[in-house]
Design a protein around this nucleic acid. Structure first.
Lengths: 234, 234
DNA sequence: TAGTGGTCTAGACCACCCG
DNA sequence: GGGTGGTCTAGACCACTAT
């Protein structure tokens, strides 16, 4: 019956396998045939079948264990992927004009919560910045950022009136570790003023912390104008 | 000088390449040697080098084009990955007890915004549910959900007093398409009551819409108790 | 058109781990 | 112990695209 005419690419195999999962031909928790058997059915090789199954496993549909075989996950742990864009790109890709402005720039002693978060010495001096990002001249994002100048000495002379700290850091040095989190917060008077919002408005906020190997680099809090929505489809 | 002792695995190659990127041995926007050359340097094969570079490209470090070659991305488009967990698992994995309760269940005519979002006939009847999810008996999430019973006929008889609709749907039928979005919203009186919050509190909210092929299945709005934070590290 | 990455094949050895 | 997936090799053909 199974008239697999030609040899299939790993994409074809992925598609067929996914269909069988979704149509419950292979029910949740059940075991798939081994790679060798599938290679035979698809008149392909184990290498190709392996790539198809490996990618489906990465996408959260399958669980693979040596000797145990390949199993269909019952609760497909679907993974949502978000890009972590530069604000500039985010705005430009939405088809709007981007404008940047520096609000404040000064050296301060790191507040204790920041030292704790970054793992720096208490009271260590850091560069404190506040910036605004506009889309078509409307407030888009209010950014509050701390840069550990000990880790990034050149930051002390950078001209953040011209270029946003996020962008500058991206081209100045790489990072190896990144922590991102998202919360809903409430606009205080200052945030409200910058974002053309009212005090008390719900504000979508992102926090990013980056390290270069073990060295803390920067912490940023990004406050988005009311109505911001982060979306992904898969 | 380059005393590459043994043949390296694709993981080794990934590590070395990533180091060179991060140490600017290969600067942003610059071109890497071709796969053949790298295979020679690492005394490996093109297949293995290919896998290493392909994965680094998927992770957002490189851009690869036929003929053009492999280029280091200047603004590493880092990708954050979030799991899309069942509330139950999210709560249990945090070490808390999970409890579920059904608040409301009724058939209603779909409001027009929902028909538009899902692409269903106007006024089509859908199952409307409100539910609560508790962590250690404290309100964790208030869920509002619409299920297209035409697409999921068995939903009409499911006992949502016993099992949450998210969980039931996951085991009842697969989905092929998913849209997720995140916003900050403001607690109205009803939401505040359910979540032990005050009216006006900022609330982190997730919206999920799923389809089975072209068929709309469900739309859900999940309101998290104040203080909720979604975090990922990479 | 030439050079690069994209993919497949055929075979091999190995690591893991269930029974 | 033996079956499964994990990975590597060596070679080939092809698809795309910069020049």
């Amino acid at each position: 019956m199974a008239t697999t005419r030609e040899n299939m690419s790993f994409r074809d195999i992925k598609r067929v396998v996914l269909e069988r999962i979704q149509k419950r031909v292979w029910a949740p928790d059940s075991l798939l045939p081994s790679e060798v058997e599938l290679a035979e059915e698809f008149s392909s090789t184990r290498t190709t079948v392996n790539r198809a199954l490996r990618e489906l496993a990465e996408e959260g549909y399958l669980e693979r264990k040596r000797k145990a075989g390949t199993r269909v996950l019952n609760a497909p742990l679907r993974k949502a992927q978000f890009n972590i864009p530069q604000v500039r790109n985010e705005i430009i890709e939405a088809g709007n004009d981007y404008r940047y402005a520096l609000v404040t720039s000064q050296m301060i002693a790191a507040p204790s919560w920041l030292s704790a978060k970054l793992g720096t010495a208490p009271e260590q001096y850091v560069l404190y910045l506040e910036c605004m990002h506009f889309a078509d001249n409307a407030p888009f994002q209010y950014e509050v950022r701390w840069i550990v100048t000990d880790s990034v000495p050149t930051a002390a002379e950078a001209d953040f009136a011209t270029i946003g700290p996020g962008e500058w850091l991206a081209q100045e040095l790489p990072f190896t570790d990144l922590e991102v989190s998202f919360t809903a917060t409430q606009a205080d008077q200052r945030i409200a003023d910058f974002l053309d919002a009212r005090e008390g408005d719900p504000i979508f906020s992102t926090q990013r912390t980056t390290w270069l190997r073990t060295q803390p680099v920067t912490h940023a809090r990004l406050y988005f104008a009311p109505g911001y929505k982060m979306t992904t489809r898969l």
